[in-house]
């Protein structure tokens, strides 16, 4: 049996509604302590150290990646010049140079010429 003096449901619900909005706040000092503890207890960040193999050791020995890039450019240029010699260079091949090739079969050159 309900006590007629007890706080009715609607008033109690209204009280709960106020409690949901009137949230008690912690002090700034507590928040500072909580943050300090969180940081103090935090695991250290994992730093991944690159493993050095023989290839990376060799690259470092010749001066690192910039030196390797220069070496690669020079190699590509050499191949290019070998495959497509510039016109200015072909004129330098004179007859005297051909005598140096005497031990070899020069008829091949004649056939091609």
């Amino acid at each position: 049996m309900r006590n007629t003096d007890e706080l009715p449901d609607d008033a109690l619900e209204a009280l709960f509604a106020v409690a949901r909005t009137e949230v008690p706040l912690p002090s700034g000092a507590l928040m500072d302590r909580l943050r300090d503890t969180a940081l103090a207890e935090q695991p250290r960040p994992v730093v991944r150290r690159a493993r050095r193999g023989p290839v990376s050791a060799l690259i470092e020995a010749i001066g690192g990646w910039p030196a390797l890039a220069g070496l690669a450019t020079a190699g590509v240029m050499g191949l290019w010049i070998g495959a497509n010699p510039p016109q200015a260079l072909t004129g330098l091949l004179v007859a005297s140079d051909l005598t140096a090739l005497a031990p070899y079969d020069l008829s091949l050159l004649d056939e091609e010429g």
């Binding site: 009715p8 609607d10 008033a11 009280l15």
Partner: peptide, 15 residues
């Protein structure tokens, strides 16, 4: 139990 604990305080609480 809350309603009983707050019995008789309706006016004081503004309800």
């Amino acid at each position: 139990a809350l309603a009983l604990a707050l019995a008789g305080r309706r006016e004081e609480l503004g309800y």
